[in-house]
Design a protein around this nucleic acid. Sequence first.
RNA 1: GGGGAUGUAGCUCAGUUGGCUAGAGCGCUUGGCUGGCAGCCAAGAGGUCGUCGGUUCGAGCCCGAUCUUCUCCA
Length: 870
Amino acid sequence: MKSQLVRQQFLDFFASKKHAIVPSSPMVLKNDPTLMFTNAGMVPFKEYFLGQKTAVDKRVADTQKCLRVSGKHNDLEEVGKDTYHHTMFEMLGNWSFGDYFKKEAIDWAWELLVEVYKIDKDCLYVSVFEGAEDDGLEYDQEAYDLWKKYVPEDRIINGNKKDNFWEMGAQGPCGPCSEIHVDIRSAEEKAKVSGRSLVNNDHPQVVEIWNLVFMEFNRKADGTLEKLPAKHVDTGMGFERLCMVLQNKQSNYDTDVFTPLIREIEAITNSEYGKNEETDIAIRVIADHVRAVAFAIADGQLPSNTGAGYVIRRILRRAIRYGFTFLNTKEPFIYKLATTLSQQMGDYFPELKIQKQLVTNVIKEEENSFLRTLDQGLVLLDGIIKNTEGTEVSGKKAFELFDTFGFPIDLTALILSEKGMTLDEDEFKKELEKQKTRSRAAAVVETDDWVILQEDAEKEFIGYDTLEANVNITQYRKVSSKKEGDLYQLVFNMTPFYPEGGGQVGDKGYLKEDDGNVIYIVDTKKENNLIIHFAKSLPKNPTQTFKVVVDEKERFRTACNHSASHLLHQALREILGTHVEQKGSAVHSKSLRFDFSHFAKMTADELRAVEDFVNSRIEDKISLEEYRNIPIKTALDKGAMALFGEKYGDTVRAIQFGKSVELCGGIHVQNTGDIWHFKIVSEGAIAAGVRRIEAITNNATKDFFLENTQVFSEVAEVLKNTKNPVKAIIDLQEENASLKKQVEALQKDKAKNLTGDLINQVETINGIHYLAVKLDLDQNSIKDLAFDLGNKIENLFLLVGTETDGKAFLSCYIAKNLVEAKQLDAGKVVRELGKLIEGGGGGQAYFATAGGKKPEGIEEALVKGKEYLK
RNA sequence: GGGGAUGUAGCUCAGUUGGCUAGAGCGCUUGGCUGGCAGCCAAGAGGUCGUCGGUUCGAGCCCGAUCUUCUCCA
């Protein structure tokens, strides 16, 4: 059974059980400080389980793209070594939000596996929660009884809290779960060892394929459990493993989920899968990682050096490294796989098809840059090896190579072992550990427990309509970090404060206590759908009702920038073409930043056209049309861009200014006329195929023009109010250049003359040509003069004194052959004579300078110079 | 967010405890030689040594601030 069909049958099956089939949510998460990537099928539905939002559909099923790079079995460095762990994978799931429970979940799971997928039921094992005394939890008899209808008792296994009790986090919804395992070993092996003993034992052919979670409790902050008012079902089935079972393969990588990629890698790298363990691992690593990277980029997450982008970069670099080391690829090649991947999965995940060009470009650029890093590292490593005595390279050096120059440690180890050398790994680990503790210490954030003042399920955002409100604090907590000190996070029963999101910064403002005391809100953020206000201090009496006020000026300027960024988006698509897509944005009160896909530097004409386009929309004074809580389809019908960054949700908000329609939760001006004026201040590249525009609006443009006019008028004034300052400046520059050359020539002439004069003053003492003079020249000219004279006169001993700004300087030049023959040292001369001008100095043996603060001493010094000739 | 590195000619980079009149290779210009795969020889142009400030007789080098790029960690 082809993998596409496996996926389709799952969805069809649950559709027939009245489930709404929803598309996969993005793999890359935005606006969730606790998580960077979707790492399980339930993540997009977290809010429903936490009771912060009510689901429209009570039954939902989907396949969700997930990414795991750390965890018990998903350490990035382990993926590829076995045949059944992945970074990116699909998780099939069905959900009940307060609807059906254990019976249906179990019945349907069995029906699907045995009747639809036709899995031999004798290969299936199930596990049931055995209970836990410390939590007062009993054996899950209900699940056991339900399973017993289908499964003989000897294949029902009891599981402990670790394996069979699922918790969302330290607090929150939780409940017992039931896992389904499948044994795909040969009959022979089954006869030898019972499958039962291999369940949950990391056997590659006895694997868990489906986990059914029955959420019925809430774990409170004090650790106790309470029954949830509504019970939920959350299930997750590993798609790749399911395919392995249904296609009778022994490895996920042998299914048609991976074989097209593996064939392509074999073709490109001229290698063969299945012949050699090292090659196989490398091919698996690349096949796995390219999926993770391609999906992430298609979701809008580009590789970068921080946060989620850094995780993506690390994954891609690991793939490059394996190719480099084991498949001998010295040129970029992984980017070529984007085509195969989009052909194979693009039908169900259209983002892969649409973003194929971007994915290709970005991966290729990353490959090039990392291969450069590797090249540089190889040279550095060579240097280290040459400077190493004995055969062990210090861990410190290896760490420096890794830390500062990004050269992978395993490559270092490999190259050393090829040369019969070793690496002090303990020292390396110590250095790495030091770095980690340093980073952690800097980022340490101590978070106190929430103090709950009142229960309020619905915490409304009222900031679209008002900037002020009388509110109560429902909960608060203290957060301490080294950087920011103590901050208090406050949650209100309702709030006019806009939390950071959709690229727009969080609102600032203040909160007023009864006695008139004001506490400033410095930022507003969202965490798990909770709007959190950051305050520097806590009100004296947190239970009173407060007046809270949003900073109107900041808010208005931010709104101008946000609306302008929508118009900018429209303008770019109009002028550059529809390949332009938003890749990120940042909207502040002072400026806006807009990242978008485009493959060339924008010309001055294009920039001007974009500015004109936006400004003409501003002049048209288009009124805002805002649609709240409309179904996503209605918004799309209005012409809103379907962004893949959107996750399945009940309703959306759409913002329309004329023909610009976008799904957006941000704050906007009532009329484009409010923006006043739009000005692009910079355009540049941030990654392959991605460009960034920075722009300003409203007051900022006023300041911008005022400042520029100011500079311009000053320039014009300096140029005597010429009509054409640009030409005047170019003329000046040319004139300046030619004058410089003339001056240089004149100086040479002058020096020649001076040399002529000086040559006549040279005395000959003991075969040495000696000259001591006081001149009125700067230090550089003296140097030039000295070397010039030195070239003309053999055996020269020159001593020059000068005086500038009340300071005295001495310079001494001694021909090199004299230095050697007579053991003379200009440095010594200058140091000793320097005492006469109350200073010191030094230099080389043939030329040295000294400076002092007693110009009267110069004459004496020049006279004394003769003494060195004896 | 924290640490490390980096910035010198159009490009790739040297520059040792401050003593330098800032270099090399490639590229460029000019002239000459030359039937051979990066032709050879000679001459030459090209530098605010990231920016600002400091220490010093003297700073590419040391100190402080700041920006760029790279990199590791969170």
